[in-house]
Simulated scan of single mutants.
Amino acid sequence: MAKILVLYYSSYGHLSVMADAVAAGIRAGGAEVDIRRVPETAPDAVVKAAGFKADHSHPVIESVDAMAQYDGVVMGTPTRFGRMSSQMAAFLDQAGGLWARGALHGKVGAAFTATASQHGGQETTLFSIITNMLHFGMTVVGLDYGFQGQMGVDEVKGGAPYGATTIADGDGSRLPSQVELDGASYLGKRVAETAAKLAA
């Protein structure tokens, strides 16, 4: 049975909720899953002043080397000016040894994100994650159009062919919608199924 890591950073909890949905899809796809978050790097004063979420339901990942234990990694981070957060970037910047050893070659990768607005950099943030995955030699899975929930303009919704997304609104008041959670679960299931096929 494939084992997948859902690895994320979340300031206000939106990505934590999305991580749970991705994990549910992974389990539905027949794989085991662990959910971990990357360490906070912002100073305590900034964390407090900005009102970052302090109570997290998922533990911090032990080390960057832990990624090598899995058959796939699904990474989630909010956008920061159209790219991944500095917290996720700082974590991945420690992965030079994994890259040098080719420890992630052939493993499955996928991405998810959150932005304040519909056009707030979702796709460029997903690509900033995917770029790292390609350098690691991973096989990238996107949110294909088999998930029709990302289509249409009947409501505000996230989702892109490059990964699962949610829209948080400028004040963070909007939580992931059911459509967005369904997209995250669909992505997780596709990752699990792809990992199983690659292992066969």
Results as ranks from 00 to 15, higher is better:
1 M>V: 05
2 A>N: 09
5 L>K: 03
5 L>T: 01
9 Y>T: 00
12 Y>L: 00
13 G>N: 09
15 L>R: 01
18 M>E: 03
20 D>Q: 15
20 D>W: 01
21 A>R: 07
22 V>P: 07
24 A>D: 14
24 A>G: 13
24 A>L: 15
26 I>F: 12
26 I>E: 06
27 R>G: 12
27 R>T: 15
30 G>V: 15
30 G>T: 13
35 I>M: 13
36 R>V: 06
37 R>W: 09
38 V>D: 07
38 V>Y: 10
43 P>M: 02
44 D>V: 01
45 A>F: 09
47 V>A: 09
48 K>H: 07
50 A>W: 09
50 A>G: 02
51 G>E: 14
54 A>K: 15
54 A>Q: 15
55 D>Y: 08
56 H>Q: 11
58 H>F: 03
59 P>K: 01
62 E>C: 05
63 S>Q: 06
63 S>M: 08
63 S>A: 14
63 S>I: 07
63 S>C: 11
64 V>I: 14
64 V>R: 03
65 D>C: 10
65 D>K: 08
66 A>F: 07
67 M>F: 08
69 Q>I: 05
70 Y>A: 01
72 G>I: 10
74 V>K: 06
76 G>H: 04
80 R>F: 02
82 G>H: 04
83 R>Y: 11
85 S>W: 01
85 S>C: 01
87 Q>P: 06
90 A>T: 13
91 F>C: 07
91 F>Y: 09
92 L>P: 03
92 L>I: 10
92 L>R: 02
93 D>P: 08
93 D>F: 09
94 Q>C: 15
99 W>E: 12
101 R>A: 13
102 G>E: 11
104 L>K: 06
105 H>V: 12
105 H>W: 15
110 A>D: 04
111 A>P: 05
112 F>I: 02
114 A>G: 02
115 T>P: 02
117 S>V: 06
118 Q>Y: 05
120 G>V: 01
122 Q>P: 10
123 E>R: 00
124 T>K: 02
124 T>C: 00
125 T>R: 00
126 L>D: 01
128 S>Q: 08
131 T>F: 12
134 L>F: 15
136 F>Y: 09
137 G>R: 07
138 M>F: 09
139 T>H: 05
144 D>N: 12
146 G>C: 05
146 G>F: 04
147 F>E: 07
151 M>L: 15
153 V>P: 08
155 E>S: 14
157 K>D: 11
158 G>R: 04
158 G>A: 07
158 G>Q: 08
159 G>N: 10
160 A>W: 13
160 A>E: 12
161 P>M: 12
161 P>R: 09
163 G>V: 04
163 G>M: 06
164 A>T: 06
164 A>K: 08
168 A>S: 14
168 A>P: 03
169 D>H: 14
169 D>K: 11
169 D>L: 15
169 D>C: 10
170 G>D: 15
170 G>I: 10
170 G>K: 11
170 G>C: 12
171 D>N: 15
172 G>C: 05
172 G>L: 03
172 G>Y: 02
174 R>I: 04
175 L>E: 13
175 L>R: 13
176 P>I: 02
177 S>P: 13
179 V>A: 13
184 A>F: 07
184 A>H: 06
185 S>I: 05
186 Y>D: 03
189 K>D: 09
189 K>N: 11
191 V>R: 00
192 A>C: 14
192 A>H: 13
192 A>P: 12
193 E>T: 11
195 A>R: 03
195 A>Q: 04
198 L>T: 10
